[in-house]
Design a protein around this nucleic acid. Structure first.
Length: 418
DNA sequence: TCTGGGGTCCTAGGACCC
DNA sequence: TCTGGGGTCCTAGGACCC
């Protein structure tokens, strides 16, 4: 059996843990740069505020209904997520962290284990230990557990729904629209409707082979999963193959050196993430974009630069940033976003040498390790690269007008050091 | 005025190998 | 008229997810 544990309105719940006055009030959380509405409390959902709506189109409505607004606070949400996941793993180490607010658990059934009893205990403990309410769906496959989870969220089920019985599946699946099945979005949903498949029961009972020919092997697997045949197992957590860091700016930027500074900052962050999962990049992609919503002249360009040997050294990556920005920047454009992607990451332990030069990376590894540990211990940015200037007056950092404190990861109050 | 930021997997086609 | 039969690797593009 699989269980999908999903934190309810996760970002809103994180804010509520540290500000109980928000409980029972309509609350929304915005994306980076205060752009879109990406999390809503049940009260906000009841006001029909849609997911992903641009904030500015709802500002008046939100004021009129006294909806509380928060900028996204990823240090807080990330830390709370770690707490939830660590708590879950105490109950069942066989877990897959699927996203910041979701995890699959796999239960081996040996005779008389009572999953429902365990699940109730998990749900209550997570709330008690972390303050985060969760909903849990149970099913014989991940796809069915996902469907069970959406039912668990409905009021009359109190946060737990068990879809393991065949009878229940028959009864429930006919009321699940195809495009609400995990892995089927609007495009495939409308294609399925064109051949008379509108709900999960109809998809389950269709011919897997026909579905494969009509759409793809991905959807064929969903057919089997709906039948209770496991095609998608728990994935062990593998290192990311690509790591991206990019942001929209608060205001457009046309100055090359400021653009370069923004990419340098993103590159430093991306390199930290890369080393944190113990990998090295083989190439990098750097891009600049103008605002696609504006009528003005557009320039979107990116460049891939290869590294002669796999690299996890920030300084070396930063040299590529300068080269890349020089290559793709065009004066006279109002850039709105920039970013970097570290590509083809491989484990740091596989040490591919360069035939033509000495590539002993141990000195660099030691240096990076010391920098990372200092930043971990004393707070982000304690040690940074000299090429990153004006850390305090960042013309590019996005808007965050409604930011809550970093309740769980604040560094300012640490005992004096150095 | 304002419109997020990450990821994964699959397929088809081309280039290459013997 | 006929012009082999296997393979692998890489990339771009298109889907999907949260």
């Amino acid at each position: 059996m699989f269980a999908l544990v999903d934190c309810n309105n996760f970002y809103v719940s994180c804010e509520r843990v540290f500000n109980p006055l928000l409980i029972n009030k309509p609350v929304v959380v915005l994306s980076n740069n205060d752009g879109c509405i990406i999390a809503r409390s049940n009260e906000a959902k009841a006001l029909n505020i849609p997911m992903g709506a641009p904030f500015h189109t709802y500002r008046d409505f939100i004021n009129a209904h006294k909806v509380k607004v928060y900028s996204s606070n990823y240090p807080l949400y990330g830390d709370m997520s770690n707490r939830v996941m660590a708590s879950l793993s105490e109950f069942n180490p066989n877990l897959e962290v699927y996203s910041i607010d979701e995890a699959f658990l796999k239960f081996d059934q040996n005779g008389n284990t009572n999953i429902d009893h365990d699940i109730l205990r998990i749900k209550d403990s997570i709330l008690k230990w972390t303050g985060i309410p969760v909903s849990i769906g149970i099913g014989p496959t991940k796809t069915l557990a996902k469907i069970a989870n959406t039912l668990a969220k409905k009021n009359n089920y109190h946060g737990i729904f068990d879809l393991s019985s065949k009878i229940k599946q028959d009864e429930i699946l006919k009321d699940v629209n195809v495009e609400n099945i995990w892995g089927i979005s609007r495009r495939w949903g409308s294609k399925l409707r064109m051949i008379g498949i509108g709900n999960a029961l109809q998809l389950r009972d269709s011919s897997p082979r026909r579905i494969r020919q009509y759409l793809s092997v991905v959807v064929e697997r969903i057919v089997y999963e709906l039948r209770g045949v496991v095609c998608l197992d728990i994935n062990e957590i593998l290192p990311k193959k690509n790591i991206m860091c990019s942001r929209s700016f608060a205001n457009t930027i046309s100055d090359k050196s400021i653009l370069r500074q923004s990419v340098i900052e993103y590159a430093i962050r991306a390199c930290e993430k890369m080393r944190n999962q113990n990998t090295r990049a083989q190439s990098v992609y750097i891009f600049l974009k103008t605002n696609k919503f504006n009528k003005g002249r557009q320039h979107n360009e990116g460049i891939v630069l290869g590294l002669s040997t796999p690299c996890s050294d920030t300084a070396q990556i930063l040299r590529l940033v300068t080269t890349a920005v020089d290559a793709i920047y065009k004066s006279g454009y109002l850039y709105q976003k920039a970013g970097i992607m570290l590509l083809d990451l491989i484990p740091a332990t596989t040490n591919q040498g360069d035939f033509f030069q000495n590539t002993n990376s141990s000195a660099s590894d030691k240096r990076m390790h010391i920098i990372d540990s200092l930043n971990k211990k004393f707070g982000p940015g304690t040690i940074s690269n000299g090429s990153l200037r004006s850390r305090n007056n960042k013309e590019w950092s996005g808007k965050r007008h409604y930011l809550s404190p970093r309740y769980t990861t604040q560094w300012d109050e640490l005992p004096h050091v150095m």
